[in-house]
Design a binder for these strands. Sequence first.
DNA 1: GTTAGGTGCTTCGAATTCGAAGCAATAAAA
DNA 2: TTTTATTGCTTCGAATTCGAAGCACCTAAC
Lengths: 167, 167
Amino acid sequence: MSTRPPQLSPTELAAYFAFTEVSSLLRHAVEKQLRDVGKLSYVQFQLLARLGDAPDGSQRMTDLADGVVYSRSGLTYQAQSLEERGLVTRGPSPEDERSTIVAITDEGRDVLAMVFPGHIAAVKAHLFESLSAGDVEMLARVMTQVSGHLRAEPPRSAAPRNRALSK
Amino acid sequence: MSTRPPQLSPTELAAYFAFTEVSSLLRHAVEKQLRDVGKLSYVQFQLLARLGDAPDGSQRMTDLADGVVYSRSGLTYQAQSLEERGLVTRGPSPEDERSTIVAITDEGRDVLAMVFPGHIAAVKAHLFESLSAGDVEMLARVMTQVSGHLRAEPPRSAAPRNRALSK
DNA sequence: GTTAGGTGCTTCGAATTCGAAGCAATAAAA
DNA sequence: TTTTATTGCTTCGAATTCGAAGCACCTAAC
């Protein structure tokens, strides 16, 4: 019935499987390092890293959520947790009363500095160690390509809201 | 302090960021498709797919857990869920009383057949659409390389147990 | 203005996840 | 054989995750 099933070539299959496997294993390895060294979840680390990178060390909640590909409610949860630990502060935006601005604190930067070297080392050890410089370059190019493609169509982590009253 | 901090080259950084982003976005897209079409979580789909691929349609719990990079307790949970839905059966191994053998049922195969085309289409659309054949080949090669490297050292999803009484 | 719709975030409940601890069976050592 | 360690899985509790629903503010059209 309907259209005939689409297929993946053997190469595509191999690429897909290996890709998901690497992604899982890398993630686990990195999470362990972050947990052990800084008691941070992967998301928390990503949030701190993004804030640390931001020009003024602060960002809107929504932009953070989009940046790390994460649900808004989940971000609220993690931001609260980070705030309780004193690693970030949260406050309303002066421009838009609805927005919450999250800013990294000095303590947050300290923790970031604490875990960063180990994080880098873990990534190096698990992702790059077995690759040649050419491979890395290629990987960067291809992943950037796909990433751009993905960013294009689907809006973002906040799903288009209920077109509810469509009746 | 101690050793000087390791560094990632700009290319490595770009590769790492793009890689994690693609992995997140792809995962979300695929999960949505599986949920919508077959009410399956990603893990559940992976489990069914692995069982469907196995020569006799069955596997040990531990091997499944290792295969999908998943915690053992999490697998117990999902296997229970799949069993309740009649998509798999579970029973003790005749060879080793400790082992549980999970086997896919005909219904399981039906659900798998139901979601598979859409799954393939999603992967094609999100991961491969913007890539050339050469890129795909390269990606397959590099990911396989890394995957092998990762599989090598760290044992598996079941962490080396408490070498507790090391005293 | 005022009203309808859009946007930003949080709260809520349910589902999922993990690690630690526990139980049973097997393997290795003594 | 008995003791000791290892392996396979499940149960437990705590933490995390998400989507839906709700609240407040903001914007545009009237």
